[in-house]
Write a protein that binds this DNA or RNA. Structure first.
Lengths: 194, 194
DNA sequence: CCGACATATATCGAACTGATATAGCGATTT
DNA sequence: AAATCGCTATATCAGTTCGATATATGTCGG
């Protein structure tokens, strides 16, 4: 699924600027299962405009760079829905430097191992809070999508958010239950080697 | 963490060909939390050879292309361990087309939603089996790393594998408990719109 | 007997990331 | 009071990586 399609999806929730779209992937609705950087979003929006799938209105702002507020055209909407029906989803891919590094726990000082695990836990704690669709401390605009006209979150988004939280909680639970055991094993492992 | 570093890590478990390294990321030890394709592995090995961090021996094979069996040099080993100590691990990133698509469940036929969820579950079921370090139906060479000389899996690998399994199981559990509810909600949602 | 799949290396275009540039405002730090 | 940092906002670009393709051949199932 390329960035162009991701942008169309982001705009399904209403109009947005390139900057706001990035926030949906950085902090917002899609943050825990898709990524897109500004360096790919802006060219994608330009291309989509050329292809007539989105349009934009330029809002001049005082003492600020102009805002380009993008919106789906009806053809853009149709194209996205067609893509949804026709695309075979690619494999999921999870990339974690921390887990890769922890694979080599035997080769590093125990303090580092513990720090890495704590960092991993902290990140998941944060993510768990960010996912929560009820958590409204984030500015309204960001979480626009996923909500109905009456403000109720939509079933699909709830399901995906719930799944994300279940994964976070399972991770945190596993760490609570196994961190100490790993550190003990590592100490044993190291003393055995001497 | 670039592919060069990943290759050094893969070779920490002993000698391997480029093809075997890819399998570690495709099917093997690292498959559920790191990815690297052949198109990046081969150039990385070439570069590492130039830099003196790995060496290779060419094994001629009858009726097969030559095998280049790579091995860490002592400097390669030192470099990798230094990287381990000095690197601030990058953010974890999880990328899932299926979850992205499910976000738009309201916009597609219920059968597709169900098919996507089932596909998601099936992939996690498979992954759960692949992770298991005790699962020995896969050829021995692949799972070389993560095992001690006496064949016992090492604590770091066990921890990471256990974490992966916990995540898989949480995912499967969530789907078991919430799939039907989502499909019901979607039906309600759709009938309300008429 | 043919197609599919596995072993094995190599290359290359297309896509994407991450950093940087520009520019002004507000908040916090020194 | 000055300096630094982070936020909004767009844009570009070098370097990295992916995914597809090429090459060559053996094995296995239908």
């Amino acid at each position: 699924m390329d960035v162009r399609t991701l942008c169309l999806g982001a705009l399904m929730g209403g109009e947005a600027t390139g900057y706001e779209i990035r926030k949906m992937f950085e902090d917002g609705t899609f943050s825990h299962f898709q990524i897109a950087s500004l360096g790919s979003i802006y060219p994608a929006l330009t291309k989509l405009t050329q292809d007539g799938l989105v349009t934009f209105v330029e809002h001049e702002q005082e003492n600020r760079p102009d805002k380009k507020v993008y919106q789906l055209t009806s053809e853009g909407r149709r194209t996205f829905l067609r893509t949804l029906l026709q695309t075979r989803p690619a494999e999921d891919r999870y990339r974690s430097d921390i887990l890769f590094m922890l694979t080599f726990a035997e080769e590093m000082p125990i303090e580092l191992t513990e720090a890495l695990i704590d960092e991993f836990a902290a990140r998941h704690e944060l993510m768990n809070q960010q996912i929560d669709p009820e958590n409204e401390d984030k500015p309204g605009v960001i979480a626009t999508y996923g909500r109905d006209d009456d403000g109720a979150p939509r079933p699909g988004c709830c399901f995906v958010a719930g799944l994300g939280q279940a994964m976070c909680e399972a991770t945190l639970k596993f760490i609570r239950e196994n961190k100490q055991g790993l550190l003990d094993d590592l100490r044993k492992f190291k003393s055995r080697k001497d």
